[in-house]
């Protein structure tokens, strides 16, 4: 009986953590993993590392102003947000409240490229992209 309930508990955990997994993310994570495997032995992506990146502050080279993911997306990914310049509505990033998120691979690639360049001033590494996707996926 005890084993049974433990089993159920573990499987529920597994299930709940994979609720928002999408083919698009799986494919991208595998791609990043392959890139990294050629350079290092162990590869892992974590939501914790993604969260740190999400909140990390970067100074824009030209204006000196602080930029971070939250500048447009806010601290809570379940929030609706506004584009910092145009004020246009940005739908929630969290797949738990916006099921359209992380479903289109082309879209994910496009926005990671644009937004990494805007926020960090450069493209993100495979490790960073993997981590931040894992973080968003868990929201």
């Amino acid at each position: 009986m005890k084993i049974n309930s433990e089993f159920i508990f573990v499987s529920t955990l597994l299930l709940s953590s994979s609720v928002y997994a999408t083919e698009a993310v799986d494919e991208l994570l595998e791609e990043y993993q392959q890139v990294l495997q050629s350079e290092q032995e162990e590869v892992s992506f974590t939501a914790e590392a993604g969260e740190i990146l999400w909140f990390q502050e970067f100074a824009d080279e030209k204006s000196g102003k602080i930029r971070q993911c939250t500048t447009c997306h806010t601290d809570d990914l379940r929030n609706e947000a506004k584009h910092t310049r145009t004020g246009k509505l940005i739908k929630p990033m969290a797949p738990s409240v916006n099921e359209e998120r992380l479903t289109e691979i082309k879209n994910i690639r496009k926005w990671l490229k644009r937004n990494c360049k805007w926020t960090l001033g450069r493209e993100c590494s495979a490790q960073e992209k993997g981590d931040v996707l894992t973080f968003i996926q868990a929201q």
Binding site: R85, K113, R114, N115
Partner: peptide, 12 residues
């Protein structure tokens, strides 16, 4: 588009 009025709006 890489510098679209200060934003990055690059397209494929």
């Amino acid at each position: 588009l890489a510098d679209h009025f200060g934003d990055n709006a690059e397209l494929a």
